[in-house]
Design a protein around this nucleic acid. Structure first.
Lengths: 201, 201
DNA sequence: GTCTATATCAGGATAGAC
DNA sequence: GTCTATCCTGATATAGAC
């Protein structure tokens, strides 16, 4: 008879984990202001009083959750599984494809992006946590890659990393975040070819 | 004694305009779910019943407002005032600088970006309106520009436009939306020089 | 420590006077 | 057409039993 859709967890999960898992469902689906403690309670299978014993208020629960998610780099899986020793062109293509597939293939990642962006005005520290854990890691990695391959003749590795990531992020934003890939179609392989071309000359 | 901060408008403004102006303040500041009809009423200086006479519900008011804002291209002022006949390098630099200054100089534009992104899951049609009115216009313009300057030797103008806009948008996102420019500093002129360099070869 | 039950209040929306 | 006054739902948060 229960209308709850409880979080799937082993019974060994701590209450803290149960609450955070329920909060994830709720905040990702409805945003901060739209999230309802009652639904978190229902999904987590604990009482409301328990939630308030673990977290002082809704805001603290929200920031704890989002900060934890921003640290889970595997969600974005930017680190390509492709070999670092491949030819640069195939390495870069592989790196980009991995990122594009992981981001747009996982609706949770897109929803997290929407929340971080949408709440970046009211929760700037969350935006910064995301930036340093996800964006900076990717940029630093690519900068390092470009700098350590002198044969590529990259004049300014940091700028090239910005161009590379920026083009991909913008592509994802139009296609997946704004649901507008059909309004301005762009073939992924064509974009990648041109992008890599313009960076490695 | 009134605690209201009424929208500044000439008395000639219609109720419809007053309501939309008040809604703009409120939705931009608090997002969709966080916005309060009472505050819109207060800012607009009309009664709550009047709001509901002009708009069936909160959602309709929200979509009407955001769609109207997405059409006001002058908010983004992407069309650079610089002469179309300039040397390509100075034209592109000027174009980019104009965009960067207009976007990051106007907090309202940043807030609109946050709302569009943040609500793009629940209001996909608003995201698409923004994409077609703002993003597509810029991309088409730059594509046209690249294509009509054969001396630039642009192999794929559409891709180059994506790279150009994407790099700039990503720069704005990190610096202004996510408040994280200091975590991964990048000089604007240095980025622009490298970006233009990599596009015009 | 966890639950049930409730206090408290603010939200969106409407009825009815003018 | 506009306002005042109000309904009713549902929100966050807490008190007190176990």
């Amino acid at each position: 008879m229960t209308k709850a859709k409880p979080v799937e967890r082993e019974p060994s999960a701590t209450k803290n984990e149960l609450i955070l898992a329920g909060a994830m469902q709720e905040f990702l689906e409805h945003g901060y202001a739209g999230a309802r403690i009652d639904r978190i309670v229902e999904a987590a299978g604990v009482s409301k009083a328990t939630v308030y014993r673990y977290f002082p208020d809704k805001e603290a629960l929200f920031t704890a959750l989002i900060q934890q998610m921003s640290c889970r780099k595997e969600l974005f899986q930017i680190q390509s599984p492709s070999s670092y020793e491949d030819e640069p062109i195939s390495f870069l293509k592989n790196y980009a494809n991995t990122m594009l597939e992981n981001v747009s293939g996982d609706p949770q990642v897109l929803t997290l992006l929407r929340i971080i962006f949408g709440e970046s005005g009211r929760f700037p520290q969350l935006a910064r946590a995301f930036a340093v854990n996800i964006e900076k890691v990717s940029l630093d990695f690519l900068t390092q890659y470009f700098a350590s391959h002198p044969k590529l003749q990259i004049a300014d590795p940091e700028v090239s990393a910005r161009i590379f990531i920026g083009t991909l992020v913008h592509f994802v934003i139009i296609r997946d975040v704004l649901h507008s890939g059909d309004l301005m179609p762009m073939d992924r392989d064509r974009l990648l070819a041109g992008l890599i071309q313009s960076i490695v000359n």
